[in-house]
C-alpha cells in the first residue's frame, strides 16, 4: 500500500519525493507544488525595496536611488500628471529566467494550473495589505478569447477571493513588444467597466475606497499607473498594486 499519493512537480513534472517527518505523519504532509530544484529557482523579493514600486534595492546601483525610492519612481513623481497616482506596488518574486519561463507557459501556452504556484505567497502577502476592492488588470475581449482565461483574474479566483472587474481594456497591440518610451507615452487603454447595471452599481461604490490592482508583471509601471489614473478619476482614494513578478 502506498501511504502517500505520488506527487509531481507542477512545473517540471518530475516526481516529488515526500518528506516524511513526525509532523507530516500526524498532520498529513504539507503539499509542495514544486520540486526542490524548481522551488529554489523562485526568487522571493526580500529586504529593502523602493517605497513605491517594490523593486529590491539590492538589485540596483546606488546611483539609481533617490532616498527611499528608485530613480524611475522619482521621475514618475516629478511629473504632475502621474504624481501619487500609484501609492505603492508590491511584487512577490524577481522576474528571473525561471519565472519568465513559468509565466510564459502560464500566459501564452495557457497552462492554467501553474497559477497555483503563486497562491500561497499571494495570500500571505495580501493578508498584510489593507484594501477595499481587488481589481484585476483586464484583457481585451479578443485577447481573452485567444488565451481562454485572464491570468490575473485566475490568480484572484484560485486564491479564493472576490474580484471586482471595475476596468475594461480597449484592444491594443501586445505590451511586451514595446519599448519603454512607447509604453509610457501611449494613450490610456483602460476605461471604467460600465457594461451593465450590476457593474454600474459597483462603480458607484468606488468613492473614497482603497483599490488593490492585481497584475502579473510590473515592468515599467505604466500599465498599472494608467489603470490607477482611471480609478482615481472615478473617485478612488488610493490605489495600490500587487504583482507576481517585478521585471
Amino acid at each position: 500500500m502506498q501511504i502517500f499519493e505520488r506527487k509531481f512537480c507542477l512545473y517540471c513534472q518530475n516526481e516529488i519525493r515526500p518528506l516524511i517527518t513526525w509532523e507530516s505523519l500526524f498532520l498529513g504532509p504539507e503539499e509542495p507544488l514544486l520540486c526542490e530544484q524548481c522551488t529554489a529557482k523562485l526568487e522571493r523579493i526580500e529586504g529593502k525595496t523602493c517605497r513605491i514600486c517594490g523593486r529590491p534595492f539590492s538589485k540596483i546601483d546606488d546611483s539609481f536611488k533617490k532616498g527611499d525610492i528608485c530613480l524611475d519612481c522619482y521621475r514618475w513623481e516629478e511629473n504632475a500628471a502621474w504624481r501619487g497616482v500609484l501609492t505603492r506596488n508590491i511584487s512577490l518574486y524577481m522576474y528571473n529566467d525561471f519565472l519568465k519561463d513559468v509565466l510564459a507557459r502560464y500566459k501564452y501556452r495557457g497552462d492554467y494550473e501553474l497559477v497555483r504556484i503563486f497562491v500561497p505567497e499571494f495570500n500571505r502577502t495580501i493578508a498584510r495589505i489593507e484594501y477595499d476592492f481587488l481589481v484585476p488588470i483586464p484583457l481585451s475581449a479578443e485577447r481573452l478569447y485567444e488565451r481562454g482565461f485572464n491570468q490575473t483574474e485566475a490568480l484572484i479566483q484560485e486564491a479564493g477571493r472576490d474580484a471586482h472587474p471595475l476596468l475594461k481594456r480597449i484592444h491594443s497591440e501586445k505590451q511586451a513588444k514595446k519599448s519603454r518610451s512607447e509604453r509610457i507615452q501611449r494613450p490610456n487603454v483602460f476605461t471604467l467597466n460600465d457594461t451593465d447595471e450590476e457593474k454600474k452599481a459597483a462603480l458607484s461604490e468606488i468613492e473614497g475606497k482603497t483599490i488593490l490592482l492585481i497584475d502579473d508583471i510590473y515592468t515599467t509601471g505604466t500599465t498599472l499607473r494608467q489603470a490607477a489614473t482611471v480609478l482615481r478619476q472615478a473617485g478612488a482614494e488610493k490605489v495600490l498594486s500587487l504583482t507576481i513578478a517585478r521585471g
Binding site: Y112, E113, R147, G148
Partner: peptide, 18 residues
Amino acid sequence: LFGRFHCARCGEECVYCR
C-alpha cells in the same frame, strides 16, 4: 497531466492536456 480551468472560449469548466 490534465488540468482544468474556466474557459472563456466555451464558457465552461474545460479540461486540457498539460
